[in-house]
């Protein structure tokens, strides 16, 4: 057997060949018992080496310093995966987000002026945007949301990328609320994920999540009333939350209390 044949058999064994090259090797192996035997030997040896090496480290006791370094590296690398808002987005995407932000902001602003004046001084901007978005989108029963429940997993993945931290739609089944849709909104504060829930009677709630700015303090859970609806909002080191619902304040308070203590 020529040396190049040996190399080809190795490349075949390790899955390094394309379909056509692999087919050529397979055709040759059918007529070449020596090459077939070599392939089988190499395959067995590869398995043996892998198995033996795997067994070595299984005996290694945990090392606290290594574990600590591993965590620090995980932190450093995780920070690398968090997009820096405004600099990571490609120019085309940035333009699209800015356009969406402008549209949403105009829409929300128009609705805002028409319907309410923020009742409480000092309410974070994202809360007002969440209420506006709730009116514009969550209470529109005819138009489907941007993402349906069936595509919620891929939607949250996309939301997470855009917002820069992982987001997810909590299960509100214990309050007999079903997730009916989700959308991503562009605002001047940055991207905002909106999850829309519906109760048995058709009442809509929307949970809005935005990245918590590093330079702003955390908000403890607070509930405020807007005309015809109540809003519960709070923040974690990564995310700002706002749940907007009907004016049934006790029910909303119950939900946000549970959510804030579990997220």
């Amino acid at each position: 057997m020529r040396p190049s044949d040996t190399l080809d058999v190795n490349a075949y064994l390790d899955g390094e060949l394309g379909p056509e090259e692999a087919a050529q090797i397979e055709a040759r192996l059918e007529d070449d018992p020596e090459a077939l035997a070599q392939l089988e030997t190499f395959a067995r040896q590869k398995d043996d080496v892998a198995y033996a090496l795997a067994s070595i480290s299984a005996k290694t006791p945990p090392n606290l310093k290594t574990a600590r370094l591993e965590r620090r590296l995980a932190n450093a690398l995780y920070n690398r995966t968090r997009p820096d808002r405004g600099t990571v987005l490609a120019p085309v995407l940035r333009g699209a987000v800015q356009l969406a932000a402008a549209c949403a902001f105009v829409a929300v602003g128009w609705w805002g002026h028409a319907n309410w004046t923020p009742p409480t001084q000092g309410v974070p901007e994202y809360v007002s945007e969440a209420v506006g978005a709730h009116q514009v989108f969550a209470e529109d029963l005819d138009r489907p949301a941007e993402f349906t429940p069936a595509s919620i997993d891929s939607a949250t993945e996309w939301f997470s990328t855009k917002i820069g931290v992982p987001v997810a739609a909590p299960d509100l089944g214990r309050y007999e609320l079903t997730l009916v849709g989700a959308r991503l909104l562009g605002t001047k504060e940055g991207p905002l994920a909106q999850f829309i829930y519906e109760g048995d009677g058709g009442a809509r709630y929307s949970l809005t999540l935005a990245r918590h700015p590093d330079d702003r303090p955390l908000s403890p859970l607070q509930v405020v009333d807007y005309p015809g609806r109540s809003v519960g909002y709070w923040s974690t080191p990564n995310l700002d939350f706002a749940l907007v619902g009907s004016s049934d304040r006790p029910e909303l308070q119950d939900i946000v209390t549970t959510l804030a203590s579990n997220i």
Binding site: L69, R72, L73, A76, L77
Partner: peptide
């Protein structure tokens, strides 16, 4: 790991 942390950027 120490070098990787330093070079994470």
């Amino acid at each position: 790991l120490t070098k990787a942390i330093a070079a994470a950027d």
